[in-house]
Write a protein that binds this DNA or RNA. Structure first.
Lengths: 125, 125
DNA sequence: GCTTGACTTGGACAAAGTCCATTGTAGGAT
DNA sequence: ATCCTACAATGGACTTTGTCCAAGTCAAGC
C-alpha cells in the first residue's frame, strides 16, 4: 500500500460518483501532484481485479469506476447528459436466460443498462 | 445509394456476425478497393440512425455492428475470446425496474449483456 | 459545357488506454 | 548505517478507435 494507491482509493471512496480514469487522476493529482496517469490506470486495474471497484462503460467514451462494488446493482443512464444512477431491479435477469439460449456457455454475470432521459434533461427541452 | 453504401450494406448482410467498423472496412475494401475508412464510418452511422443496424459495444475496444436490427435481442459474450451470440431471454427487464428506482427518468431502452465463457474456450483451458 | 450539391477521400487530429525503459524507494541483509 | 534487491511509479511514446475537415469527384440539371 503505497501513497499513490492510498490516494486513488481515497478519491474513489470520497465521492460515490462514477468517475472516469482521467477524473480519478485529476483528483488524485490535487492530493499528490506527482502521481502519473499510468499509476492511476495500474491501480484502478488492480482494484478491479481485486473486486473492490467495478468497471462501468455506459458510453463509448471512457470507462468509469464504481466504488459501489459490494451490493450488486445495475445502471440507469441519461442519454442526453450522461448522468448515471445505480438501480436495483427486482428479478434476476440471469434466470431469464433459458438453457437453450445459452449455447453451452457458462454464464457468470449479467450487466443491465437502462437508457432514458433524466428529469433534468427532460425539463430543458 | 452509391456504390460505397451498397458495398457496406452487402458486407453486413453477407455475414450475420458482429463486425467492427474496421472489419467492415476491410471486407468492403475487398470489393471496392478505393473505399475510405471515413465513408464506412459515415455509412454505418447513417444505417444506425435509420435503425437498419444496431451498435453493440461489449468491450472497450471497438463498436460492433449488428445487422439483426429487426428482432429485439440481447447479447451473450465470451470473456475469453470475445465471441458474441444473440440471445432472447424470457421476461422483460424493463418491467423489473420499479417506479421508485427510476428517479424520474423516462426509461426507453434496456441493454442486457450476459458474460461468461463459451464452450470452445472452456474446453481449451 | 458549366454549375451545383452531395458524396467520397485521405490525412490530420483527438481521446483513451497500454507499454516500456528508466528512476525511485522501502525493507531486508550485511 | 549502508548496500541490495525487488517492486512500484514515472513519463513519454505508441496504439487503437473514431471524428473532422478541406479538397476532390461525379452526376444531374440548367
Amino acid at each position: 500500500m503505497t501513497a499513490q494507491r492510498r490516494v486513488v482509493a481515497e478519491v474513489l471512496e470520497g465521492d460515490h460518483v462514477h468517475l472516469t480514469a482521467d477524473e480519478v487522476h485529476a483528483r488524485a493529482v490535487e492530493r499528490l501532484p506527482e502521481i502519473s496517469r499510468a499509476t492511476v490506470y495500474n491501480t484502478l486495474g488492480e482494484m478491479v481485479s481485486l473486486g473492490e471497484v467495478i468497471e462501468v462503460s455506459t458510453d463509448r467514451r471512457a470507462k468509469r469506476y464504481d466504488p459501489n462494488a459490494h451490493r450488486p446493482h445495475h445502471h440507469l443512464v441519461c442519454g442526453r447528459c450522461g448522468a448515471i444512477r445505480d438501480v436495483h431491479p427486482s428479478g434476476n435477469p440471469l434466470a431469464d436466460l433459458p438453457d437453450d439460449e445459452r449455447f453451452g456457455f457458462t454464464v457468470s454475470d449479467v450487466e443491465v443498462t437502462y437508457r432514458g432521459t433524466c428529469p433534468n434533461c427532460a425539463a430543458t427541452v
